[in-house]
Design a protein around this nucleic acid. Structure first.
Lengths: 158, 158
DNA sequence: CCGAATTAGTTGACGCGTCAAATAAGTTAG
DNA sequence: CTAACTTATTTGACGCGTCAACTAATTCGG
């Protein structure tokens, strides 16, 4: 592959600014959601994923994939959400290994209550700071950077 | 404050793309660094910030800001780096409340060893995907987003 | 039908980040 | 001078995510 040359000054500036966003923006979104709704982003995502199903339920393994988390993390998230009354867990009838998580009315209400504040925070932290032209630039750049090909952490053989 | 109910379609597209970057890019960078150098991004950033000083040292509070972390987090990071021999801590001569963190030769060596792989990953994940003009757009947009201002979510009493 | 392999999900130990409290040293006003 | 702030940093308790080990059900080969 290409030799490890250093970043140019221009790239270095860009990277420093991006790194700061990468550190601080998720924290700002997380803290709003935590403070105003007592939910972590991951919890919020799980509620969103369940709410998007007609029957408001999903298998744990499927839910983990949809919310982009590991199974063990999802297991702990759903345990917390269940303790809070936002979700129920029951054994799947067809496969007794599987667990079906179901959004409760209370969970849906929680999501409906949390969503506007979250959206408002996204607006404050992102769109209120950009001109329409910058929003277009952002879209273009973000799309170019999406889908990282993490060849680095690929399969470990054996 | 009056808050718009939802994002416009253009904003929604931008947000979806940005959210994906926010989620996947740090993971891709973190995993490379962790695997190849046994460092977290935050640790690496601290080493970088120190290395960029002529005297290779900085006050804790300044370092926290530079590395975009809280003071308490920085305190723990530097404690770990010190335990690993990459950094030393000493009292500031002029203000005995302050602590000066200094990069050791070993820490600089660690950084020098880790940098090429990390830079290569940054290049792969970011700059290889952007035109020079897009790099400038990125810098501009990232700088606009770089200072989250969390006061927005109105502190309700107490 | 038995036993190995596979799949689903949970859990214990551990490390890290956060919050609030603590420690400590400057700073300011009377 | 000193009591009350303010600033700089650390630390204890706590919650969360990760990794690996574990339980348990299903599948597959023989």
């Amino acid at each position: 592959m290409a030799e490890p040359e250093w970043l140019t000054p221009v790239e270095h500036d860009a990277w420093m600014a991006l790194a700061e966003v990468l550190f601080l923006l998720p924290a700002a979104l997380e803290s709003q959601l935590q403070r105003d709704a007592d939910l972590a982003m991951a919890d919020y995502m799980v509620l969103v994923m369940l709410s998007e199903r007609d029957d408001h339920c999903m298998r744990m393994s499927e839910l983990a994939t949809s919310a982009s988390t590991s199974q063990s993390r999802l297991s702990r998230i759903v345990a917390r959400l269940e303790a809070a009354g936002y979700v129920t867990r029951e054994m799947a009838p067809d496969d007794r290994r599987a667990v079906i998580a179901t959004l409760t009315d209370s969970g849906l209400a929680k999501l409906v209550a949390a969503a506007p504040g979250h959206v408002a925070q996204v607006r404050r932290q992102v769109f209120d700071r950009l001109t329409p032209a910058q929003v277009l630039s952002l879209t273009e750049v973000a799309r170019a950077l999406a889908h990282p090909d993490d060849s680095a952490s690929c399969e470990l053989s054996t």
